[in-house]
C-alpha cells in the first residue's frame, strides 16, 4: 500500500464517519481511496467545492459528534487554516492530513517539509495549537491515524498528520493490524435537544473575560498534552557524540547514513520526533552528557531547528543542514555535514 492509502484505510478502521476533500497532488490517492471505501462502509464522503468548504464540512460533521477528517497538501492546507482555527476555538475534534509539497506559492509537487512552522505554531489566527504527528513509514502512518483520532477526541482539538510526498506516494508492505478505538462520550454534540438543554457550539465570546477564560482553558489543555503526548524514536543515543535530529521521510535517509557511520564505529545517533507538537523536549533533556552535538536535517531551510535549540536551551551546539523547494538532502551531503561536526 502507498502511504496515502494506508492513512485512508486506517481512518476508516478508526471509525472516521465523514471525509471531505478537494483534489491536490501528492495526496490524491487518499481522496480516491476514501471516495470508494467510505460509502462501502456506510460513511459519508464528499468532494467539496474548495478546501475552505472541505474543512468547514469537517467542522459540521464534528459538531454533530462524528469522527471527521480531511486531507490536502501545502497550498490547500493554507486555505484550511481558517477552519482549523475555528475547530480549535470551538474545541471540536478533527483530523487533518497534510502531505507536504514544495512551496511557497504553488511551488511544485516534490516532497518537502516546509510547513513545519505552519503546522506546529498554530497556522491560523489565534493562540492555539494543533497536535501534530509525523510518520516516517507507511506502517507508522497507518498506526498514527488511530492515535490521531484518539487524541482529537481526548483533547477535543484538531490533530494534524504531517507527512511529505515521499511518504504519501511510497509503497511499503503493511500488516493491517486492528488499532485501538475508544469511544468518547460527546454530550456537547449537536444531535437535537431532546431531553436536555440546547447545545451551542461557538467560538465567538464577547462578554467581558469570556474569551480569556476560553484561552486559559485551551492553554491548560495544551500543557496537559505537552506533559503526556511527547513521542519520539531514538537510535544509538546512549553513546552518540553527534545526534542527528530529523523527522518524517527525512529521518529515513538519516537512518541509512547513521548505519554507515556505525559500521565504521563512529558515534552518531538519531532523535526522530514523532510528535512535532508537543515537541519531544524530554528526548533532549535526557542527554546530559557534555560531549553531545546536534545536527538538525530538514527538507526546509531551518524550521524544526528552532525547537531543537529551545529544547537544549542553547547548552549544546546545534547545527543545521537542509534543502527545500523539492530538493532532498542527499546522503553524501549529510555525511559531509556530520563530518564537519566531528572536527
Amino acid at each position: 500500500m502507498t502511504g496515502n492509502e494506508a492513512i485512508a484505510e486506517a481512518a476508516i478502521r478508526a471509525g472516521c464517519g465523514f471525509y471531505a476533500g478537494y483534489p491536490i497532488t501528492p495526496q490524491n490517492e487518499l481522496t480516491a481511496y476514501m471516495a470508494k471505501n467510505m460509502p462501502e462502509n456506510n460513511r459519508v464522503f464528499i468532494q467539496a467545492e474548495s478546501e475552505l468548504a472541505a474543512i468547514n464540512m469537517v467542522f459540521g460533521a464534528s459538531a454533530a459528534g462524528v469522527r471527521a477528517m480531511t486531507s490536502s497538501s501545502s497550498p490547500g492546507i493554507s486555505l484550511k487554516q481558517e477552519g482549523i482555527s475555528y475547530l480549535a476555538g470551538a474545541e471540536l475534534p478533527a483530523v487533518i492530513v497534510n502531505i507536504m509539497r514544495g512551496g511557497p506559492g504553488l511551488g511544485n509537487i516534490a516532497p518537502s517539509q516546509s510547513d513545519y512552522f505552519q503546522a506546529t505554531k498554530g497556522g491560523g489566527h489565534g493562540d492555539y495549537h494543533s497536535i501534530v504527528l509525523s510518520p516516517s513509514s507507511v506502517e507508522e502512518a497507518y498506526g498514527l491515524m488511530f492515535d490521531a483520532f484518539d487524541l482529537a477526541d481526548k483533547y477535543r482539538n484538531p490533530v494534524m498528520i504531517l507527512g511529505d510526498g515521499m511518504l504519501g506516494q511510497m509503497m511499503e508492505p503493511l500488516s493491517l493490524k486492528p488499532g485501538k478505538v475508544i469511544h468518547y462520550p460527546k454530550p456537547w454534540a449537536l444531535i437535537g435537544c431532546q431531553g436536555r438543554p440546547a447545545n451551542i457550539i461557538r467560538s465567538l465570546l464577547l462578554k467581558d473575560g469570556a474569551l480569556e477564560e476560553l484561552n486559559l482553558k485551551l492553554q491548560k489543555k495544551y500543557k496537559a498534552a505537552q506533559e503526556k503526548e511527547q513521542r519520539w524514536e531514538e537510535q544509538f543515543t546512549d553513546d552518540a557524540e553527534i545526534i542527528v535530529v530529523a523527522y518524517g521521510g527525512m529521518a529515513r535517509i538519516i537512518k541509512s547514513v547513521i548505519r554507515q557511520f556505525r559500521q565504521k564505529n563512529k558515534k552518531v545517533g538519531l532523535i526522530r520526533p514523532i510528535s512535532l507538537w508537543p515537541f519531544p523536549v524530554k528526548a533532549f533533556a535526557k542527554q546530559t552528557r557534555k560531549k553531545v552535538k546536534y545536527l538538525v536535517v530538514e527538507m526546509s531551510y531551518g524550521q524544526m531547528v528552532e525547537d531543537v535549540k529551545l529544547a537544549v536551551n542553547c547548552s549544546r551546539p546545534v547545527e543545521f543542514f537542509g534543502r527545500a523547494g523539492g530538493a532532498i538532502p542527499a546522503e553524501g551531503e549529510i555525511i559531509a555535514a556530520i563530518k564537519k561536526l566531528e572536527k
Binding site: T25, A110, Q169, M170, M171, E172, P173
Partner: peptide, 23 residues
C-alpha cells in the same frame, strides 16, 4: 516497479517503491 516490489514482498523481502512524476 510495483510488480517487482510486490513479487519481492511475497518472497519475504523488505521493499520500498517510491514514484516520481512530472505534472
Amino acid at each position: 516497479g510495483k510488480i517487482i516490489a510486490e513479487a519481492a514482498m511475497l518472497e519475504k523481502k523488505f521493499v520500498t517503491w517510491l514514484p516520481a512524476y512530472g505534472a
